[in-house]
């Protein structure tokens, strides 16, 4: 299973696009927001946590269809399904690879983009904490969506339609942590809820993803 993870990471780095694309998208979204709402720093600092969370979520969404599509097209998925590794493990590794190549860079880049949106001083810690806690859930839920739509040609739009409603609770709690952190309020409750969602999806959703993948491989 480690071999699979290494392969996916290697593919992401070598294929060029996969690794930087989400990050670049995140940057562009954040740069576009001030153009849309105006440069006033008071307003920007108020909406910064939410904008950063939505930007990260959309950047995550952008790369979801790559999780299984390439392996589906070249037949690797068939071969993996006959391998001695359980499909549940394979989807977990896929989700982990997606998080390492997309989620983690977003978490690390978020503070820099926070500066652009004049995020208040005390907000940085909680912004990073909330993204670090929440993006794994985005990857795992996205892997489920990608597994659902793997057999569908040009399923990208459908994938977004399926995954976005599933992202609602994660986004609400994640952005709430970041917002409360920026405004200097207590963040423990939403942070715990966010952690609950992340660990819950980590524990349960791979089973659903694997089941869905098996159906699609039939």
């Amino acid at each position: 299973m480690i071999a699979l993870l290494v392969r996916d990471l290697r593919l992401a780095v070598r294929a060029g696009g996969g690794f930087g694309l989400g990050l670049a998208f995140f940057l562009i979204v954040v740069v576009l927001v001030p153009f849309g709402v105006g440069p006033e720093s008071g307003l920007l600092s108020k909406i910064a946590p939410g904008v950063l969370w939505i930007g990260a979520l959309l950047a995550c969404l952008l790369s979801l269809d790559r999780i299984f599509a390439l392996d589906w097209e070249d037949g690797s998925l068939d071969l993996l399904a006959t391998a001695p590794v359980p499909l549940e493990g394979i989807v977990s590794m896929k989700a982990l690879a997606h998080w390492l190549t997309t989620g983690l860079p977003l978490v690390l880049a978020a503070p820099a983009l926070g500066v652009l949106l004049s995020l208040p001083q005390q907000g940085y810690v909680w912004l990073v904490a909330s993204l670090a806690m929440g993006t794994p859930a985005l990857s795992v839920i996205g892997t489920f969506g990608a597994a659902l739509t793997v057999g569908i040609k040009r399923g990208g739009l459908l994938l977004s339609l399926l995954v976005l409603p599933l992202y609602v609770p994660t986004l609400i709690f994640g952005a709430e942590v970041a917002r409360r952190g920026a405004e200097g309020f207590e963040v423990m409750t939403p942070l715990l809820m966010l952690g609950g969602i992340t660990f819950g999806t980590l524990a349960l959703l791979p089973f659903a993803s694997a089941a869905v993948l098996r159906i699609n491989l039939r």
């Binding site: 070598r14 070249d74 037949g75």
Partner: peptide, 29 residues
């Protein structure tokens, strides 16, 4: 767990080398 399956699609990753492609499958199995 006794079958090795090969179909029309070979599951080859274009950007990996021949040896890397093979050793991935060796590791998986």
């Amino acid at each position: 767990d006794r079958i090795a399956y090969a179909a029309h699609a070979d599951g080859i990753k274009q950007v990996l080398t021949v040896a890397e492609n093979l050793s991935l499958w060796a590791d998986v199995f």
